[in-house]
Simulated assay, not measured.
Amino acid sequence: MRLPSTQALRALEAFSRHGTLWQAAAELNVTRSAVSHQLRFLEQDLGFALLQRAGKGVVLTAQGRHYAAEVRKALTTLTDAAVQYGDRGVLQGSLTVSSTPGFASFWLCTHAAEFKQLHPDVTLRIVTPHRLHDVAAPGVDVYIAYGDGDWPRHSVELLSTVDCTPVCSPALLNQLGGLNEPADVLRAILLHLSGLSEWTSWFAAAGIIGPDPERGLIFSDMNLVLAAAMAGQGIAIGDNFVCSHVLETGRLVRPFDLSVRVASAYYFVTQRDRSGNPAIQAFAIWLKGRLAQTTPLRAPQPSALPPATPPLP
């Protein structure tokens, strides 16, 4: 049996991930008809059926699914070898990193050029997921994910636990006449992400009973939360890494020292069969080293009482 064409194998691998011809075609930048023809040619070369009818569409046969899984492993090996044994003895290739929007905008994008300076021949792409805990997007090599760390089919490494505290603009703090005690945050609009309970956790730690965080402004993206906070639209809950830069530059301030450790954390996530990829390893080494040099928001001792914050002059 002759060796199938790489183009046909890539068509199969893309179709197996997406499940539709048009999505596979979009990824490969070819027509839907071209993908269909490649799969049919591949069936002829292999001598067994890859596709079967399902309603108005087609799906992989059981044998097709198993073969596609092996093809994915083989293509990954070829890609990693190209990176590892590139010309000039330097690290080459491309790396796509999926990062939560807040971490990407307020931390990763402020340091990413350093990685490029260290590895100029690696093409680095940074994308953001629709869900903070998503580790299944096609074409992504590395995930900086926010969640509980339970991704059993992946290689998972804790990057940082998360401490959250209220943050707001200096102008809003002055407009409110300062915040003397934690319950004073209720004098302003609360800003937060949809589906997260950081405000509830902070209220409990501060001994505030009964407020409903849902009465505030709810956003789908941490960039929007912090943009609203910097614009003086309310008080947000910020975590120790996402907010470190804007606090250092004075665009946001902490009304209180009281922070709470939340259940979710940031994790470095990759597919298990790609953890040895040289570009991934290089990015992991750089990321962990840079994080170690970053000074996050300091979490005070649990017994510390939140001090009063006087109005700004």
Rank of each mutant, 00 (worst) to 15 (best):
Leu3Ile: 12
Pro4Asp: 14
Ser5Gly: 04
Thr6Asp: 09
Glu13Trp: 02
Phe15Asp: 01
Phe15Gly: 00
Arg17Lys: 04
Arg17Met: 04
His18Gly: 04
Gln23Ile: 01
Arg32Thr: 08
Ser33Ala: 14
Val35Leu: 07
Phe41Ile: 00
Glu43Cys: 08
Leu50Gly: 05
Leu50Asn: 03
Leu50His: 07
Leu50Glu: 02
Leu51Gly: 02
Val58Lys: 09
Thr61Gly: 06
Gln63Arg: 12
Arg65His: 13
His66Val: 04
Ala68His: 09
Thr76Trp: 15
Thr79Ala: 10
Ala81Gln: 10
Tyr85Asp: 02
Gln92His: 12
Ser94Met: 05
Trp107Lys: 01
Cys109Ile: 00
Thr110Gly: 03
Glu114Ile: 03
Lys116Val: 02
Pro120Gly: 08
Arg125Tyr: 07
Arg131Tyr: 05
Val135Gly: 14
Val140Ile: 13
Tyr143Met: 09
Tyr146Leu: 09
Asp150Asn: 14
Glu157Trp: 03
Glu157Asp: 14
Leu158Ser: 09
Ser160Leu: 05
Ser169Asn: 08
Ser169Met: 02
Leu173Glu: 07
Leu179Thr: 02
Leu186Gln: 12
Ser197Trp: 04
Thr200His: 12
Ala206Leu: 05
Ala206His: 06
Gly207Arg: 10
Gly207Thr: 04
Ile209Thr: 14
Glu214Phe: 10
Gly216Asp: 15
Met222Val: 05
Asn223Cys: 11
Gln233Thr: 00
Cys243Asn: 11
Leu247Met: 01
Arg251Met: 01
Val253Phe: 09
Leu258Pro: 06
Leu258Ala: 03
Ser259Gly: 06
Ala263Cys: 05
Arg272Cys: 03
Arg272Ala: 15
Arg274Glu: 12
Ala279Pro: 10
Phe283Trp: 15
Phe283Ser: 12
Leu287Val: 03
Lys288Ala: 09
Gln293Lys: 12
Thr295Glu: 11
Ser303Ala: 13
Ser303Cys: 10
Leu305Lys: 11
Pro307Leu: 14
